[in-house]
Design a protein around this nucleic acid. Structure first.
Lengths: 138, 138
DNA sequence: TGTATTTCCTATTAAATCTATAGGGTATTA
DNA sequence: TAATACCCTATAGATTTAATAGGAAATACA
């Protein structure tokens, strides 16, 4: 399951990406527009700032804004930050690898074989989509 | 994340599929070979029997066995029974659809748009792999 | 300079889910 | 008829997720 953290983070990012100018947008505005708990969203945006996706400005007229162009942000990078591993099981994870403690041999493991395929196909989707691709047309 | 239930279920199924004859295999044998808690595996095999993947025989010399040929069991059907929805979010699930309560319009939802692609590519993997494809060669 | 505004940060709690275990009941076969 | 193995329910422990609370720090502007 996709966590709400990721879901809300993606929605916030696309909302920022759909802004005409690059003026800071306040947490409250995003939260209201996307129906997200303001405090929860706050912590998500903080993560996105610390990981280099967003810039922020404090005080009146402050808020969050995209640092890079939306078309330069592959969804893959966002997913890794918000959701963590893309693989469904850590023994096939590229960035968060861990050996299964119950599995004596990965090469002959049926689950391993299957999950590598799932990882690769999912990764393809996350690579070919940028934030710009997710902005609604209207 | 893939649940252990699904992981163990897949391993048990491939173990049964790799048997030369179709004689029943006892829970304990599978559990030991695959390093699975016997009681936990018991409940998983029970599920697989009730959903038509396995047959069972009681008494001495009893155990579980595959009902169908491994090549006639698409992984998709196993995943739906063990793991539940294949989609990462219920608003794009084909078999377990539910509307998001925070989302006013699915069509213009960025997460929706992305997750449909992930669902379809994952589904492709699960459709083209049968249980037979997961049996280790050796 | 002061005040309202807004982000920043830490800690904690509530809820949900997953994993595993316990303990016995029931059916079958040698 | 005793041994074997499946069948079933309940429940507890662990982990993760989602959300809340409260205040500190920085900024704009009058």
């Amino acid at each position: 399951m996709l966590s709400k953290k990721t879901k809300y983070g993606l929605k916030a990012l696309t909302y920022l990406a759909s802004q005409k100018d690059k003026k800071p947008v306040q947490i409250m505005e995003i939260a209201e527009h996307e129906n997200i708990s303001q405090k929860f969203l706050e912590s998500i945006l903080l993560t996105l700032r610390k990981t280099g996706f967003l810039g922020s400005k404090k005080g009146k007229g402050g808020g969050y804004y995209l640092i890079k162009d939306a078309s330069d942000i592959p969804i893959m990078t966002v997913m890794r930050v918000l959701e963590g591993p893309i693989a469904m099981i850590s023994c096939v994870s590229l960035n968060f690898y861990e050996k299964c403690d119950d599995c004596p041999d990965e090469v002959s493991c049926s689950v391993h074989k299957l999950m590598i395929q799932v990882r690769d196909s999912t990764l393809d989707v996350y690579k070919k989509n940028t934030l710009a691709d997710l902005i609604p047309k209207s």
